[in-house]
Simulated scan of single mutants.
Amino acid sequence: MMEKSPVFFADGSSTKMINAYKKAQETFKYFWREQSWEYRRIVPGLTVSCVKVAFTQEKPGSSELMVEHMWINEIDFDGDHIRGVLINQPNDITHIQVGDPVEVPLEEISDWLFAIYPSKQPKGLSKLFSSSPLPKAYGGFTIQVMREEMSKSDRKAHDNAWGLDFGDYNDIQVVNEQKLHPENLIEHPMSKNMKEKLIEFIQQYPSELTHTDEKGYTILHKETIAGNLTSVDVLLKAGADKNVKTQSGKTALDFARQMKWEHIIPMLESN
C-alpha cells in the first residue's frame, strides 16, 4: 500500500519535524506494546504496523550525506534495538533494497504508525446505510507535520491514498481508543483480560518462569519491555526472578526504567 501512495515532501530539518522524530522515539513503547499483543492475537487486529527509519549514505564523490526516511515492518524489539524489513524502494540510497533486513537502535527511528478499525460499529439498519469506517491511525508524527502543511483537499487525497483515518493533526493519539478509554495509556486491556490465562499457563508450565532465550531474556523481561503491569505482577507472584540479567547485563527493572514504564518500576523495585 505504501509504495503506491503519493509522495509528500517536508523539510526534515525543520523544528516541527525534529520534534516529531523525538516524540516518535519517546512514545515508541506504545507502538511496541500494541505490536507485541498483535503477535498473540488469533485474529489480526492491526491493518498497518510499521516504523520509519532514517537511512544515510555518502553522496558519490562527496562527503555530504544523503538521508532517506523509509518504512520497515515485521517489527521486533528487544528493549534496545528495533528489527524489521524494508518496505519502501529507496530513491537515491543504494546500500539497501526492499525486503532487506534492518536493525537500528531506538534513537534512530523517525516515526511509527499502527492502525486498527474502531471497535464500535453501526448496528442494525444504520450499519446497512452507513459507509464503512476507515482504520484509525495512531502515531504518525511526521505524517501529521506534513498533513498540517497541506490544503484541505490535499489532506483528503493523502488520507484516501493511505486508506486511513489520521484524524486531527493537532491531536495525535498513541494508544487504541485513547479518547474513550484513557486508562489504556496505563495498561493495554489485553494484559488485564489475559490475566487468568497467564496464571493457568504458568501453573501448567512452571519452567517458563526461568526459561531464557538465546539472548538471556526471560518472560519477565519481555512483559516488562511491553509495559504489561498485570502480567508482570502475575509473574512476580508466581516466583519469577527479577534479578536475572540478559546477555547484555540488563534486568527487568533496567528495561522498565529505560522504557519509562513508571507504573512497573515500583513493582520491580520492591521486595
Rank of each mutant, 00 (worst) to 15 (best):
Q204I: 07
E177I: 00
L198K: 09
I202S: 06
L185W: 03
P189R: 06
I202V: 15
Y217I: 14
K215D: 13
V174G: 00
M190T: 10
E196R: 04
E214A: 13
G163A: 08
L185I: 13
I186H: 07
N193M: 09
V175Y: 00
E187Q: 10
P206W: 05
L198E: 01
T212P: 14
H221F: 08
F166W: 06
D171G: 02
N184I: 06
L198I: 08
E214G: 11
V175G: 01
H221V: 11
D165A: 09
D165C: 03
K197F: 14
G163E: 12
I186L: 09
D159W: 14
E187I: 04
Q203K: 13
D165N: 12
I202Y: 06
G163N: 11
N176I: 15
L185D: 13
T218N: 13
D213R: 07
H221A: 07
I172K: 00
T210N: 11
V174W: 01
G167A: 02
S207M: 08
I172V: 12
H188A: 05
K192F: 13
H188R: 02
G163C: 10
Q203G: 05
I219N: 09
K192P: 08
E183P: 02
D213F: 10
E196G: 02
M190S: 09
D165V: 03
E214Y: 14
E187A: 04
E187G: 04
E177D: 08
L164T: 01
G216S: 12
N160I: 10
D213M: 13
M194E: 14
H188K: 03
L164F: 03
E208Q: 13
T218M: 10
T218P: 15
Q203P: 00
P189T: 09
V174Q: 00
S191Q: 04
E183A: 14
E200F: 06
K179Y: 00
S207N: 12
Y217F: 15
D159M: 11
G163T: 09
P189I: 07
L220F: 15
Y169I: 02
N184D: 06
E200C: 03
N170G: 03
F201Y: 11
E200D: 15
V174Y: 02
E183Y: 00
I219P: 02
G167K: 01
D168S: 05
D171P: 00
L220I: 11
T212M: 10
L198A: 07
M194C: 12
G216T: 09
N160C: 07
V175L: 01
N193V: 02
I186G: 08
I202D: 04
H221W: 05
H211A: 15
F201N: 12
I186S: 10
M194Y: 12
N176Y: 14
G216R: 05
Q203T: 08
F201I: 08
Q204S: 15
Y169F: 12
E196K: 07
I186E: 13
I172L: 04
I186M: 08
P189V: 08
Q203C: 05
K195E: 15
D159E: 13
H181S: 13
